[in-house]
Simulated assay, not measured.
Amino acid sequence: MIVKELVQQMIDEDGVISVEKCGNINIYWCFKNQTLQTLYDSSEKLKKQIQETESDIAISKRELEKTLETGRRKKFTVGQKSYSRDVLIEKRKKVQEEIKKKSTSLQKIESIRWDGAKIQENKQRVHLKKGQLEKITDNIEILVDYLYKKFFLQPEQIRKEFGIPEEFEELTDI
């Protein structure tokens, strides 16, 4: 079994051995020329990868040297213009502060601005609150009526004791 597995591995993975079925017999072969060509192709592929990697390394080294030469100096030149690092950093801080201020003012304006969707949303919220308020007033009236019937207390006395107005204001539709 071990020999069969080894031969199968050499056929499938390595490509060292070739096989062809002839009738009910399998014929295996391997030519020296075929093996050398495979090795040559692999070596050429590896050489090409090495060259590409070396060129990438050279480019990265040049960029690193350029960065080290020009990086973090107090004053530097780009094209015909010369700049001061400290001045540019201060300008950047001021611009960032201005952006923050303007974005907060924009948020305030957006919260104040009323469009159709916001108006509709607020209408729904007011109607919901109105419905809740009406339920609460109905419940208060029911409780006052319950205390009146259960303990024979006058509704005026109950309202006076708990600070409930004699009659709730009518809410008009919005």
Results as ranks from 00 to 15, higher is better:
125 R>L: 14
25 I>Q: 13
152 F>D: 13
97 E>H: 05
83 Y>S: 02
93 K>T: 13
3 V>M: 05
120 Q>Y: 06
36 L>S: 06
35 T>A: 04
51 Q>K: 09
105 S>G: 00
57 I>Q: 07
75 K>N: 12
31 F>D: 08
62 R>V: 11
34 Q>T: 14
53 T>C: 10
108 K>F: 01
111 S>P: 00
56 D>E: 10
134 E>S: 06
144 V>R: 05
140 I>S: 01
107 Q>F: 02
99 I>F: 10
107 Q>C: 03
46 L>C: 04
110 E>M: 12
118 K>M: 08
49 Q>T: 04
36 L>V: 11
16 V>K: 11
3 V>R: 10
99 I>E: 07
133 L>P: 00
105 S>N: 11
144 V>S: 02
158 I>D: 02
114 W>R: 08
58 A>L: 08
16 V>N: 06
157 Q>N: 12
122 N>T: 09
13 E>C: 08
18 S>I: 03
119 I>G: 02
113 R>L: 08
45 K>C: 12
7 V>W: 02
27 I>H: 13
102 K>D: 03
113 R>I: 04
163 G>P: 05
139 N>A: 14
143 L>S: 07
93 K>V: 06
65 E>P: 01
161 E>D: 12
82 S>Y: 03
147 L>P: 01
131 G>Y: 06
50 I>F: 13
126 V>C: 01
29 W>L: 00
87 V>M: 10
1 M>E: 09
82 S>N: 12
63 E>V: 04
4 K>Q: 09
156 E>G: 02
63 E>G: 00
89 I>Y: 04
91 K>I: 08
80 Q>C: 01
91 K>F: 09
72 R>Q: 12
120 Q>V: 02
63 E>F: 03
96 Q>I: 14
65 E>Y: 14
161 E>N: 05
72 R>P: 00
125 R>T: 15
97 E>D: 13
123 K>C: 01
49 Q>Y: 09
96 Q>D: 15
62 R>A: 14
123 K>V: 09
115 D>M: 04
147 L>I: 07
42 S>M: 11
92 R>N: 12
51 Q>I: 11
117 A>I: 07
39 L>R: 05
142 I>Q: 10
89 I>S: 03
1 M>W: 01
33 N>A: 08
64 L>T: 14
9 Q>A: 15
133 L>M: 14
16 V>S: 05
123 K>I: 11
150 K>M: 04
45 K>S: 15
98 E>Y: 09
58 A>H: 08
14 D>V: 12
160 K>H: 09
75 K>F: 02
108 K>N: 09
60 S>K: 10
141 E>T: 07
7 V>M: 11
141 E>N: 10
48 K>C: 01
47 K>V: 01
136 I>A: 15
40 Y>L: 03
